[in-house]
Design a protein around this nucleic acid. Structure first.
Lengths: 142, 142
DNA sequence: ATAAATTAGTTGATATGTCAATTAATAAAT
DNA sequence: ATTTATTAATTGACATATCAACTAATTTAT
């Protein structure tokens, strides 16, 4: 029977935790007043103007219920706004306010530094293997 | 500027989410009445009889506060019990009850199936690369 | 020996994850 | 056309993540 440390899924989970812990503590240290999950939502919106909440949930692989709550928070912080979709009165689409646009622009560098740091000393080949193996694992568990 | 999907940390996080989603839905489907996090705590205790809560927190890379709450739940479910440590009145050590021991034994097979499924079609070499790259990433972000 | 610092665990507050139930709008079926 | 089913979003309930504040026990520093 394998020890927990040898289990691949455990190692992946552990890596997520370590990375999130690091990035969150940096965001806190820099007083950005935002969580990782909130950042990811802002980033997705900046790449996909006028996504609906449903599209946001799919892209971020989060529950629509969770998205609703994060969006309420980001709206209170003044980073985003919700509008009714023209041809569908059920759906809401989300877009960055000017404050949201500058926030993403100003802090992209910090996030990019974390990303660069994460792959330091890892070869391109290794990264490609990582990417492809992770993708296989996701396919196996879908 | 990289799209979110190309970011390694994002891919790792996504894989964790997909895997947990799959495993949790299986545990629910089989009516085990337990969460993944609770299972991991049980598994760690079964591998390390009489761990203190602090050791549990370190091993599972979770906050001591979170461990306290999970332990209270597992105690209510009758899977574990807490005892005072002989030479340290602050520390509590945790051990499986007989119910907990049989629960882990009975369900280990199910969990092992998930683990086998997760690495289906992935070579040993790829798995070793994955393991070593994940370890490098964790080192980079510590 | 006493005061100060550290340690293990708990509790509170806020954000998130997950699932079920609900509401309102839209689409499909008959 | 009216009923039925589906869809997008919200809300409630409970478990978890994180951080700060707190208690009680133990060290250490003086």
């Amino acid at each position: 029977m394998k020890k927990l440390e040898e289990v691949i899924l455990y190692q992946i989970d552990l890596t997520t935790k370590v990375a999130k812990h690091y990035s969150q503590s940096e965001l806190t240290r820099l007083n950005l007043g935002i969580t990782i999950e909130q950042w990811i939502v802002l980033k997705i919106i900046s790449e996909n103007e006028n996504f609906t909440q449903k599209e946001l949930a799919i892209k971020s692989y989060r529950d629509p219920a969770a998205i609703t709550r994060t969006i309420v928070i980001l709206e209170k912080k003044g980073f985003i706004s919700r509008k009714k979709v023209a041809n569908n009165a059920r759906a809401h689409c989300v877009s960055l306010t000017s404050k949201g646009i500058s926030f993403v622009a100003e802090n992209m560098k910090i996030i990019n530094k974390h990303r660069e740091l994460s792959t330091k000393g890892i070869s391109q080949t290794e990264l490609e293997t990582l990417s492809s193996v992770l993708s296989k694992i996701r396919k196996n568990m879908s």
